[in-house]
Design a protein around this nucleic acid. Structure first.
Lengths: 169, 169
DNA sequence: TAAATAATTGACAAAGAAAGTCAAAGTGAT
DNA sequence: ATCACTTTGACTTTCTTTGTCAATTATTTA
């Protein structure tokens, strides 16, 4: 089961973790360590470290080249952040991408793990089994957006309440 | 006559039993063991391991793909209650009935209000606007059951943890 | 200094390895 | 004989792995 992809993904994430949000590698060296072709690294980066997944990847070719992977910091207010995501996403959402978003939200403390599990359940393939495959990702997105919108409203209310309490002092 | 379906069903259930509620298989391998076409496994999963029957099935395609089957253990009071509800409801769920159930769950302290709001959003007509009206209530029920099942699993885990803590004293 | 060479990553395509879908054909109860 | 359930298989979609060649940059050499 240990897919190469997953091993590489984890290695990079560990490195990022150890390095406070940023890591610089050379593709060839990492490939050698994992014993795979270099383009495998490229593949992992393009499927697991995209913008939507909260990463910025920069690189430089040529002798002495490198690949730098940064984790995007989340310094907005949380309700703003959610609204930002909400506006950025398109019309369709694969099961996998839903998972990625939710994991991110949990990591950034926007939703708690229990809520994430519920949201995952609501957008799972099993829940949508009776939806024709053609439209499944569309429906999934609608459900996801609706839940997220509710969440954003909850967050906004909480933030407002907190602000009020501060003002009363 | 031992139907293939039944044999496969039993095999999977045995595996789940041995594995504390969860197994991960590859469809092809299991099919080979039973000497049937892979889609037979799919059939068994979709008829015998549904949400209503207390199972959550996830999968992933592609190289290194898998199918994961989780069952709710069902030996605890609250999760038992939720499962009871889950089995009692039919195959379809109107928007209004969803609302009634959720209000009830909140009243009975099975889910908190925030979660209820999320679950409401997931089953709202707006979320399901693109689902043809004829099947909308069916899909709504599937989503509802999936979320509820996840919730039941969470509750069960919590209860187990609490019991453990009591035992440690 | 200009040109060649070596060292890197990038883009994309092809092949491989799963699982998913769907409809047709088979079986068994009633 | 019908109806629901099972079984099968061809085809599709998704994800992974590998490979090739192009683009870019640094370094060496003439």
């Amino acid at each position: 089961m240990a897919r190469l992809t997953d091993i590489i993904e984890q290695m990079i994430k560990d490195m990022i973790e150890e390095n406070e949000g940023m890591v610089e590698i050379t593709r060839g060296a990492l490939a050698e360590k994992v014993d795979c072709v270099p383009s495998q690294i490229t593949y992992v980066l393009s499927t697991r470290f995209t913008n939507g997944q909260g990463y910025i990847v920069e690189s430089r070719r040529g002798g002495g080249g490198w690949i730098r992977i940064k984790r995007i910091a989340n310094d907005n207010s949380t309700s703003n952040y959610v609204m930002h995501i909400l506006n950025g996403v398109g019309d369709t959402l694969s099961r996998h991408d839903a998972d990625v978003y939710l994991t991110n939200f949990v990591d950034y403390d926007i939703i708690d793990k229990k809520t994430a599990v519920i949201m995952f359940a609501a957008t799972s393939d099993q829940a949508l089994a009776k939806v024709p495959p053609r439209t499944r990702d569309l429906i999934r997105m609608d459900i996801f957006k609706n839940m997220l919108l509710s969440k954003a409203m909850q967050l906004e209310e909480e933030e407002k309440k907190e602000a009020d309490e501060r003002n009363e002092m």
